[in-house]
């Protein structure tokens, strides 16, 4: 079984978020990059579990520059067999998806896994776009995945519940919490990752369909407001109209 796992780099969750060049670019100064948690914890680990049960090969793919190779090596240390880096600096989900779909199309994968979203842009776009480019079924926000021959049984979140579905391979799945448990790379894996194959592929020509023009930070948190316990209407009004959380 050939499985392709899409990984993306993301700032460590403790990173200070700031912008530079007139608030048009993320300030990478001092930022430690990690494998996007949804890609690593759920997509990659579930791919490895399937390989361990059924045999096959797990390839990781990212669209990024040479600076992303530390993140790729970490994914290899967790257990992926080989890696592909599309040599480009992506700015748009569509651009990224087309690059991955092109590689997947030319290399005949049975299953393509992504995380449900990246923690930097939170777009949830790449998986669905790859599926459309491949004309393959797409199961989004899946929390469970079992492969039975040429079919898969999955659980996915729907409004107010969980849907159990079945579809055929090849397919694209975006993975969410529940799919697998995080694995910490051991020393043997870290050492082995240094020599695992990492193929660098030239990107295909694609125009970005969207672009981030600028960024802003939220207003600083205001002082705590104390509400009298007997005044629930005011609390609800504030939560609804001012905090906008309900």
């Amino acid at each position: 079984m050939k499985i392709l796992v899409c990984i993306s780099k993301a700032p460590d969750t403790t990173s200070k978020i700031a912008f530079t060049e007139g608030n048009t670019k993320f300030d990478e100064n001092g930022v430690q990059y990690i494998v996007n948690p949804y890609d690593e914890w759920y997509a990659l680990v579930r791919a490895l579990e399937i390989k361990e049960a059924l045999g096959g090969n797990v390839t990781i793919i990212t669209v990024g520059t040479a600076a992303d190779e530390a993140v790729i090596r970490k994914a290899l240390a967790i257990g992926a067999d080989d890696a592909v880096r599309i040599d480009a600096d992506p700015k748009d989900a569509y651009y990224t998806a087309v690059q991955i779909a092109e590689y997947a199309k030319n290399n005949q994968f049975d299953l393509v896994l992504t995380g449900k979203e990246t923690i930097n842009y939170n777009g949830s776009q790449v998986g669905g776009m790859i599926a459309e480019a491949l004309d393959a079924p797409f199961i989004s926000v899946a929390t469970k995945l079992d492969v039975n021959g040429s079919n898969m049984t999955l659980e996915r979140e729907i409004a107010g519940g969980i849907e159990v579905v079945e579809t055929g391979l090849p397919a694209v799945v975006s993975c969410a919490k529940g799919m697998a448990e995080q694995r910490i790379p051991n020393m043997r894996g870290i050492m082995a990752a240094r020599t695992k194959p990492l193929q660098v592929v030239a990107p295909v020509s694609v125009e970005d369909m969207t672009s981030f023009v600028s960024y802003t930070m939220p207003n600083a948190k205001s002082a705590c407001k104390m509400i009298d316990p007997s005044n629930m209407d005011e609390l609800v009004e504030l939560l609804h109209n001012e905090a906008k959380v309900i």
Binding site: A97, Q125, G127, G128, M129, A159, M209
Partner: peptide, 22 residues
């Protein structure tokens, strides 16, 4: 919502329409 997260990206590719998520 969850349906949009599955369908809007596909539609974006099909219609060649830029997608703004969220």
């Amino acid at each position: 919502d969850l349906t949009a997260k599955a369908v809007a990206p596909r539609l974006s590719v099909r219609m060649k329409a830029g997608l703004i998520s969220g």
